[in-house]
Write a protein that binds this DNA or RNA. Structure first.
Length: 506
RNA sequence: GAGCCGUUAGCUCAGGCGGUAGAGCAUCGGACUUUUAAUCCGAGGGUCGUGGGUUCGAGUCCCACACGGCUCACCA
């Protein structure tokens, strides 16, 4: 249905009066009459508002009998012949206004009666309470500030069509006020992160989004082109390598909040552009990052819920530290019986998977750690509802992480899980330039063998490491996923204002 | 990429076995000067996602396509 119904935002209907839907034709005609009478609403430049809905309610007792000027969108109307009740909705809430023929006179009352649902108006008058006790502005003067030429979604059932909700998010926000709360929560979460870090001496920085060479994660990039320099550039898949250059430069605590771009599929947990926070702290390590995650998520949870407990998908979740810690291979072994510490290669792993009838699809084309990853996704991750750090990732899939002193096959890396969702990635940063080069070379070989997401060689980064980077812990958290979990939304699209959709074909 | 489901009035939704499309809100006209999903009376509004096919006849059955949703796959 969307093709026609939602696909009309660009059609102006010029000279096609016969094709304009009924309700829009009526509104257009009203606008033409206003313009002809020299009262074009779109010539208004503002309105001297004195109170928002919330302010009006807050100062209700002092305002009774006083004048107030309010603004908002006309979202409901109850006519009574020579009087009209209407609901104005502004960002803070709803305001009832009451227009009477006696107060406005014939002409102004007729003009008020001519308003359509969706119109944006300003109104001024005396504040009073109706006999049912509702705070109301008795209109003595009003102005149409913008004409709504299209009818709004229906007031009672709201807007359900997910396609229109995402394509025309403004309609979603108008029709479903609770959707605004999700995005307020998102902003509060980011604010909580920012405050938490700034209070602890972290510096917020901005590093390039357009990068001559991408890196810092395993993902395929978007490519673009700079005309003047005639060079290809990549949209960043992660800010990691730039932030660590800042550690080399002498900043000891830095963070960046920003958009990342990964050229991958779209589903309930992935959007091609998403928001991540990355934090780097010198002279600490993965353990320090675990405490930081506990602190950050705790601060966000407090900001959103006033508590360290919340509900996601029907599960009570408690983020009180310390969070459970479990090594990756141990978690896999406990859940599946497979011990990847003793499995030498992919063929052995495939055989073990088959023997145990593990349901992870076709493993024929997968490498050893890809098989481990699948077993983890299928048998471990869904159970990680309470906050958990999965630790000790194999060095083969952690090209930027420092090895564990007691087991060089593993790294001091962890991923935090919450509500069964992976919400980030962190480790002790590899700062040995020679080993970093060897790791990159290994990635380059993987790329040559067909791994499109292997990390490219970054000589410039290695040069930076050669000047000396202090030992450090680094952390990335997915803002979208965290918001999804902390606001108990079922889908990443619910926390992204304008998720990517296919364009409508004409 | 695969499977399943969806697409009917501005919005939310009904439409057995194929017989020419309905409701509520919204809109238009009328009544009503403290209502609040206001109420009451009356009316208009549809290329049933697009294109083919089967049929005397298709919203309904079949095929293809588009967009979306869910699940899986891919992927942090």
């Amino acid at each position: 249905m969307g093709v026609r119904r939602a696909g009309r935002p660009s059609s102006p209907y010029r000279g096609e009066a016969m094709e304009i839907p009924d309700q829009e034709r009526v509104r257009r005609e009203k606008l033409e009459r206003l313009r002809a009478a020299g009262r074009d609403p779109f010539l208004q430049h503002g309105y001297p508002r004195t109170h928002s809905a919330r302010e009006l309610e807050k100062h209700a007792e002092a305002l009774l009998g006083q004048q107030a000027a309010v603004c908002g969108r006309l979202q409901a109307r109850r006519g009574h012949g020579k009087a009209i009740f209407a609901d104005l909705v502004d960002e803070s809430g709803r305001i009832q206004v009451y227009a009477r023929l006696d107060d406005l006179g014939e002409e102004q009352f007729a003009a008020f009666d001519d308003l359509d649902l969706g119109d944006i108006i300003g109104a001024r008058g005396e504040v009073f309470r109706t006999r049912t006790g509702e705070l109301t502005v008795r209109v003595s003067e009003f102005a149409l500030l913008a004409k709504a030429l299209r009818p709004l979604p229906e007031k009672f059932h709201g807007l359900h069509d997910p396609e229109i909700r995402y394509r025309q998010r403004y309609l979603d926000l108008i029709a479903q006020p609770q959707v605004r709360e999700v995005f307020r929560a998102r902003a509060a979460l980011i604010q909580a992160f920012r405050s938490y870090l700034c209070e602890r001496g972290f510096l917020e920085v901005e590093t390039p989004i357009l990068q001559p060479l991408y890196g810092g994660a395993a993902a395929r990039p978007f490519t673009t082109h700079h005309n003047a320099l005639d060079m290809n550039l990549y949209l960043r898949i992660a800010p990691e390598l730039y932030l660590k250059r800042l550690l080399v430069g002498g900043f000891e605590r830095v963070f960046e909040i920003g958009r990342m771009f990964r050229n991958e599929g779209i589903d309930t947990r992935h959007n091609p552009e998403f928001t991540m926070i990355e934090v780097y702290q010198a002279y600490t390590d993965a353990n320090g990052m675990m405490e930081l995650v506990e602190g950050l998520v705790g601060a966000a949870c407090q900001a959103l819920h006033g508590s360290l407990k919340f509900t996601y998908r029907g599960n009570q979740i408690d983020v009180t530290p310390p969070w459970r810690r479990v090594p990756l291979l141990e978690a896999i072994r406990a859940a599946s019986g497979l011990d990847f510490a003793t499995i030498p290669d992919a063929a052995t792993a495939r055989q073990a998977v088959a023997e145990r009838n593990l349901d992870i699809g076709n493993t024929a084309a997968l490498g050893l750690w890809e098989i481990a990853d699948k077993v983890f996704d299928r048998y471990v991750q869904p159970a990680l509802v309470q906050p958990t750090f999965v630790t000790d990732y194999p060095v083969a899939i952690s090209p930027l992480a420092k090895r564990k002193p007691d087991n060089p096959e593993l790294t001091a890396r962890f991923e935090p899980f919450l509500g069964g969702e992976e919400i980030g990635n962190a480790f002790s940063e590899l700062n040995d330039p020679d080993e970093q080069r060897a790791r990159f070379e290994q990635q380059v070989r993987a790329r040559q063998e067909g791994d499109l997401e292997a990390h490219p060689m970054d000589e410039d980064y290695i040069t930076a490491l050669e000047y000396g980077m202090p030992p450090a812990g680094g952390l990335g958290l997915g803002i979208d996923r965290l918001t999804m979990v902390l606001t108990d939304q079922p889908n990443l699209r619910e926390v992204i204002l304008f998720p990517l959709l296919r364009p409508l074909s004409e």
